[in-house]
Design a protein around this nucleic acid. Structure first.
Lengths: 208, 208
DNA sequence: TGTACATCAGTGAACGCGCGTTCACTGATGTAC
DNA sequence: TGTACATCAGTGAACGCGCGTTCACTGATGTAC
């Protein structure tokens, strides 16, 4: 391998970005968080293992940096799905579909974000803070608008948001972790579940 | 430690059972599948590592034996919840609650069963076979009865069963993997989600 | 009842592996004069 | 413009660890005579 050229002064972010990219690629390709080792990442970047420590305090920080980026991507995907859409209920539905689509398109990233142990999380990465400030917070806003518009049976926005998350998470994570199960047609199944849950959320047509 | 007494002839199943029990305990206590190593299990049982190989071909077989047992327990829990209940719809609802309860009571076992990679599975443990023959198969039967009884809007039993599974899996797995998230009251949340989905499954009261 | 033998559950030592992390270092880049 | 020096990104070797798995073995249990 051609020796990589040394970074210029103040160019430290270049290697950092390369490390992050390599870690993500490794995660995707291997489909296994434990394959994202300091040594494997270093090798993928073409650098020795100790240099990783110039950019990340330890392995945890590296993994969490990868997660942080992915949380950002998820939020972006969901916001992108509702650009120009103003009806609250339609925004909610579109976000649900975007969530599932994001997960199925990026299964390994999804896995790390939502099905790994919460234990080894550094303080600055608490679930509350990270999720509350991005996708989940944005969803709450839409739900409150939908409540105001009389589009929901329940008026408890935190409850509705949590339930919706569980719904789309159930679809996504089960399809990811049981890909060989004899599911019915995948697209129809997703539609069935989303539609069933949506029906239950809407107010009775004839009023209470 | 007192040296364990050697097994009598034909008493080979005793150690096998002890190994399984130790593996399960290790899984629960550590909350981490990777902590269930051959060596750790052997030490917990009070035996040397190579003796594990007298009862399991390799580490995979051991892990899967643990899973197999847990799948059985889940099926038992769900069947137990509907003893003496004949109304199909009520059986379905009770099974859903039993599923969630099983998962929340046995979070680490649940995690291994439903959120780990499907890759490293031996043939005899294919998802299709294992699940189809127990809990999932039993649920299908109830759903078909409910369809016959006119209790469901959809008439596609595989679709309804898959959707229900996703629903209860979403509740269970998200509560397990994000225990620190600022959820609303847990019991209310579970009720809200189950009730919302149930509403969507039932036929319109006024007929189509 | 007593003895020689076969069985086989479990042992102890060793293999090679990849891991996270540390440490003193090197040497190209940039700067001060 | 030229030289001596400081900086600091990245290196190379080493640490101790726990892992899965193998192998030749031991010695208590059971059996045949």
């Amino acid at each position: 391998m051609a020796p990589r050229s040394r970074a210029r002064r103040g160019d430290g972010l270049r290697l950092r970005a390369e490390i992050l990219a390599a870690a993500e690629r490794l995660l995707i390709d291997s489909g296994d968080e434990s394959a994202v080792s300091i040594r494997a990442v270093a090798q993928a970047v073409g650098v020795t293992a100790p240099s990783i420590y110039l950019h990340f305090a330890d392995r945890n920080e590296l993994i969490f940096a990868v997660c942080e980026e992915q949380f950002g991507h998820l939020d972006e995907a969901m916001e992108h799905a509702v650009v120009g859409v103003s009806d609250p209920w339609e925004r909610i539905e579109r976000k649900g579909r975007a969530y599932v689509e994001f997960g199925l398109t990026n299964p390994e990233q999804y896995r790390v974000l939502f099905t790994s142990r919460a234990d080894c999380t550094p303080d600055r990465f608490l679930d509350e803070r990270l999720i509350a400030t991005s996708a989940f917070g944005h969803l709450i806003a839409d739900i409150e608008a939908a409540i105001t518009a009389g589009q929901l049976r329940s008026h408890d926005s935190a409850m509705v948001a949590s339930g919706l998350w569980m719904m789309v998470h159930g679809i996504t994570s089960l399809l990811i972790s049981k890909p060989d199960f004899p599911w019915p047609d995948r697209a129809q199944l997703i539609e069935h579940v989303l539609h069933t849950y949506s029906s239950g959320l809407r107010p009775d047509p004839a009023g209470r």
